[in-house]
Amino acid sequence: MKIALIQMKVQDQKSLNLKKAKKHIKEAARNGAELVILPEMFNTPYNNSYFEKFAEEYPGESTDVLKNLAKELNLVIVGGSIPERECEHIYNTSYVFSKKGDLIAKHRKIHLFDIDVEGGAKFKESDTLTAGEDLTTFQVGDMKFGLIVCYDIRFPDLSMNLALKGVDAIIVPAAFNMTTGPAHWHLSARARALDNQVYTLLCSQSRNEDSSYRAYGHSLVASPWGNIQDELQIEEGILYSNLDKDYITKVRGELPLLKHRRPNIYEMK
């Protein structure tokens, strides 16, 4: 399966972000992508004040754009994430639309990014956002995908649970910053891929030096063997990669980690 990760520069005008996302998605479709992924908070700067300002109920402006593009271009779109408003709550939510334009999955970020690194990044998503509660999977052809958002990747139990549900790949719209990115971006992608013998697909915003929150970039695909299969750097662009279900089967046959688990010994009772 040919996939495309869109690493785009996000600006402070939603209309411009949607226009840019539309342009990149159409380019990916022309180049034969069957599934396209956008980054975390692709329609808004990564800032609590913008989350409130740009939040949308479903259906809304951003999801309508994605739905219509999916149907028009006959491809699956994983809409990175946007701030979703429901009653008094705002969630960091990723929507997935089928080739027919149907909503087939919705993931609300489970783990909120509340950090304070001495001499580095400080951010508190919980000042604005509410945490999600559900695991998310969806099917495209013969491949099953798990969907998480950014900080969710740091919690191995979540990815393991998705692997045990039979996913072949875990999609991670994300926006690591210039403190956490150099330290843990590649490590997290490779570790989750290796531990669970799945592809991990991390899709970031591109680097914007003028932004108050500078994304790390480096959108990538890690293979079930734990190596980086394809990667962008910091610039805006589209990363194309191929997912091979037979390769997953090969790796799991040679090194059957999931079969060798002994949860009766080490899982909490």
Rank of each mutant, 00 (worst) to 15 (best):
K23V: 01
R108L: 08
Y46V: 11
N264Q: 10
K9M: 15
E34P: 03
P256K: 06
F97C: 07
D246P: 04
G181H: 04
A55K: 03
T128N: 01
W225E: 14
E84R: 04
Q233W: 07
T93M: 03
I153W: 04
T200Q: 12
L135R: 07
E254F: 13
N196T: 10
K106Q: 11
D142K: 13
K269E: 15
A131D: 09
D230R: 12
A189S: 15
I25E: 00
I37W: 00
A163R: 15
F51Q: 04
N68H: 12
G101A: 12
N208R: 07
G141P: 07
I228R: 06
V149Q: 00
V78M: 00
K67Y: 06
I265P: 01
T44A: 08
D246C: 06
A175L: 02
Y46N: 02
E267Y: 14
Y95K: 01
V149F: 02
L258I: 10
N264K: 13
S223I: 04
G101S: 13
Y247T: 07
K9A: 09
E34Y: 03
H107W: 03
L232I: 07
Q197V: 12
L220C: 14
P263D: 12
I248W: 02
S62K: 09
L194N: 12
E236F: 11
G119R: 04
N31T: 07
D152A: 05
T137C: 09
E56L: 08
K106T: 15
H111N: 14
A131W: 04
D230W: 03
A33N: 05
K99F: 11
Y151E: 11
A28E: 00
F54K: 05
S188G: 10
M178I: 14
T130D: 01
N196R: 01
N74S: 13
K9G: 14
K67H: 01
L38I: 10
H107A: 02
I6A: 02
T93S: 15
K245T: 11
R85H: 11
I82H: 00
G60S: 13
E57N: 14
E118C: 02
I228T: 09
L66F: 15
K245A: 15
K53P: 03
